[in-house]
Design a protein around this nucleic acid. Sequence first.
DNA 1: ACATTAGTTCCGCAGCTGCGGCGCGGCTGC
DNA 2: GCAGCCGCGCCGCAGCTGCGGAACTAATGT
Lengths: 143, 143
Amino acid sequence: MPYFRVAEAARLLGVSDDTVRRWVEQGHLAAEVDGAGRKVVDGAVLAAFARAQATEVPDPTGVGRSARNRFVGLVTEVKADAVMAQVELQCGPHRVVSLMSTEAVRELELVPGSLAVALVKATQVIVETPDRVVQSTRHPAAG
Amino acid sequence: MPYFRVAEAARLLGVSDDTVRRWVEQGHLAAEVDGAGRKVVDGAVLAAFARAQATEVPDPTGVGRSARNRFVGLVTEVKADAVMAQVELQCGPHRVVSLMSTEAVRELELVPGSLAVALVKATQVIVETPDRVVQSTRHPAAG
DNA sequence: ACATTAGTTCCGCAGCTGCGGCGCGGCTGC
DNA sequence: GCAGCCGCGCCGCAGCTGCGGAACTAATGT
């Protein structure tokens, strides 16, 4: 049963701790009080809140809004080798690096500044705590 | 040579068009003017600006949020079957769905509200324009 | 050519946010 | 038990942001 303190929740939501505190005061976000009188937010509540307030980057074509495993962003860097190329995208606050053939880069006309979409085909989920790092066995992501 | 209008740039940056206009006025973001007197932002400039602005986001628990192909977020949903499970994470403004074994879900103690990290192992980059959709051949992502 | 629609720009305003400061309480090490 | 350090809560303020409105322009269909 994961709980987060105000400062942790603030960083996860991308705002300051004061803002989280105000949201709790105004009833927008449910919080509880631990034994020491400090505000704590239930992980599930925080997750639901984050999902509700998430404003995904609208798809340029208008289709596939809020699609999962779909990252719309701008190409920030293209390193092209003879056969393979490494393309880096800035998708909101996240950076995605994709390896593809140089031929594909040329076909897609990928240059810094291009609007592109990164489709995540496979992921590996790990859980990090201050103590230990647990990771799952590798599996393909849901498509 | 991609160019974006103010409204497009605003959506990509996650702010309103007025804010982008103000950033241009204050010299924080370079913009040009097209033949009709409308502000346009060069794609490369916009990409660099987006990347610079994203680095301001600190990481939640010491894990690098600015690291590439690394998405720190909260578990919003867990659908567990007999053998396989589908885990959905809210990582900032993006939703990531990962397919893994139910055994891994149990080992990682993944429940809605858990803090987890999704490592992107493979991506497919496509370029979307209002006219056509071009996609690269499938290749593994850079690790 | 004309009317219509959608998009852009500028303006003012209310609201929210982030920041700095301050005091208090919990946690740690001795 | 005690001192020190760090985090949390509260408060006020300056700054920024988003929104609505109004005027103008470009593109579109008749």
